[in-house]
Design a protein around this nucleic acid. Structure first.
Lengths: 339, 339
DNA sequence: CTGAAAGCGCTTACAG
DNA sequence: CTGAAAGCGCTTACAG
């Protein structure tokens, strides 16, 4: 591989001058610059990021994104949004998909990342533990969280409590009293802020409306289509079937809808279903849902990181430390008053 | 940040010994090793990847994956499979989502990657141009392609021609003669191998069955749900509606199914629909489809890269240069003989 | 088993 | 405008 020395030899100047010329620094004569650029092109010169990084203080121009499951619509969309903004600004994206494995989480967050392979980190969907906050802070890693919030770091999210309240209130207003919840009940050692907040929001809204909580109406849906379908089947089998279901994600809601159809339970006449996200498919299946801006959350998180890294408030305006994006109830044909 | 020098001073040995001790190299006394390890832990030592890379010949332990759209099920799943295998072996994944933008493609493939930020590259869904092959080869970048094939590099894929033949033959055998195609017709400057191969397969199968090709039956579906829906609507409006549709992806097929439902066209009585992928949702909507192993393609591509990078055939067995994974027709309720 | 020294490919004051 | 030289944080023969 051709190095800066080859260019120096080729053009008859010093490596220092080559370096300046290549990077467009001032105080290089146009003639010299042209000679150097030409040689670089001819010899197919490409700088070594390792050498550049070492010599100029360790920047990698890389941002790591840690997600739970790239294959879920929410996460894939967030990554898409963040990657786009970061790449525009010349940053590369290192993707870590921890896939619900607590070990992987530990390895990535507590070992891998601190290895200085990225300048900053976007954590999506995980509520960082105090240990993680301490460790990453100690190693000087700038972090923004997406979908959860800790006081130490900037964050982007929607108000998951409000999301649940919106959905459940809608069902209550329609006259439902037996309302099931399909979400994620067990954490499996991961700290997942979102499922917990939505479950709490569901419970609180019912309680405040004077509806007694029924633990048998809280089902595990694993935040997947299949999990939602399993939960739906379970619900359809019951003699005291609820009249409505609040699903903490659209993908789970789709599963419930399919289970209902298979069981011959009509939606919305016999069962109302509401989801969260406004997944691209929600429109087509007529799912009432609480829409959240997903792509935008990814973009905002990326901007917060860039601001932190480059400190240019001018370009992005003032980015709040804790950004909370609005959500909105989208009425479609999967909800109606109980018959 | 604490460096190898701090550890050397702290433990009273040379940096050379510290380096050996840290990396578990032989010829270090147990006592010394323990002292060094202890100091490293106490001082929170983390090696600088830049320094390591520079000193030991430029390896980054990073593999780049270039995809078209992370948000599409196929790509997200491939990334998931590849990332998992790579991370297990200690490699990080750099994700480039070029999003159908030819400029982004140029910038990433022809500029960014060659910058030595990754040891190797997995290209997903793009048919590399001769220029790209030449350029990346010249820069010594190991590449494997997924979903396309060039003679110069290993590849993993399914036989897209056979995929289309399977789907269309199924429809022909059911007795259909007017069979539409929904896929991607225009390339927009990207070289997409898959859409082209499926379209050609569709045409060839019809031709060989003696069915005259009707250009008005080839519709643009952009490989998205919405694109499929648009194409579906267009088809439903026609007076000479086809009796069957072959969609080059399940997501487009879902769109067609929704369009049919909205138009009151019954599936499969009045319209047969077959897709490609076996998307997780296909089962629930009863879509007949040609299943391809998606996760596995990602895993195999990762293994091919690792083999190339580490040259250990033992662990992975012999990995063929060009791997073609089998596909299979999955019969469900969206296809039937024309009425 | 351990150390001194060169070297990886750049950048960056400091002189001139 | 340009160059000599030190330095970034490691690894790696080479001696001992």
């Amino acid at each position: 591989m051709t190095s800066i020395h080859d260019l120096a030899r080729e053009t008859g100047v010093s490596t220092a001058t080559v370096s300046r010329a290549l990077r467009g620094l001032p105080r290089v004569s146009e003639e010299t610059r042209a000679k150097v650029m030409d040689a670089a092109l001819r010899l197919g010169y490409v700088p070594s990021p390792h050498a550049v990084g070492l010599a100029s203080g360790g920047q990698t121009r890389t941002v790591a994104i840690v997600v739970l499951f790239v294959t879920r619509w929410f996460f894939a969309t967030v990554v898409h949004g963040a990657e786009q903004v970061l790449r525009e600004r010349g940053y590369d994206v290192l993707l870590y998909n921890i896939g619900g494995d607590p070990d992987a989480r530990r390895r990535v967050l507590l070992t891998q990342l601190v290895t200085k392979r990225a300048d900053a980190l976007i954590v999506v969907g995980l509520g960082p533990t105090p240990e993680e906050v301490l460790w990453l802070s100690r190693h000087g890693m700038p972090v923004v969280t997406l979908g959860s919030r800790v006081p130490e770091w900037p964050s982007v999210r929607v108000d998951d409590d409000a999301v649940a309240r919106t959905a459940v209130s809608h069902l209550l207003e329609l006259g439902h009293r037996r309302i099931a919840y399909v979400g994620q009940l067990s954490d499996e050692g991961l700290d997942l802020a979102t499922p917990r907040a939505r479950l709490e929001g569901y419970r609180a809204t019912l309680r405040e409306a004077g509806v007694e909580l029924d633990p048998s109406l809280e089902l595990e849906g694993r935040f997947t289509l299949e999990g939602g379908h399993d939960a739906g089947e379970e619900l359809m089998r019951r003699t005291d079937r609820p009249t409505a279901v609040f699903c903490a994600s659209d993908e789970m809601a789709f599963g419930v809808l399919y289970a209902a159809r298979e069981a011959g339970v009509r939606v919305p006449e016999e069962l109302s279903v509401v989801g969260v996200d406004d997944h691209e498919m929600a429109h087509y299946v007529g799912l009432t849902t609480v829409r959240q801006p997903v792509l935008q959350q990814g973009r905002v998180a990326a901007r917060q990181i860039l601001q932190r890294l480059q400190g240019d408030d001018r370009e992005y305006g003032h980015v709040n430390e804790h950004v909370e994006l609005p959500t909105e109830l989208v009425l479609r044909s999967s909800t109606a008053p109980p018959s």
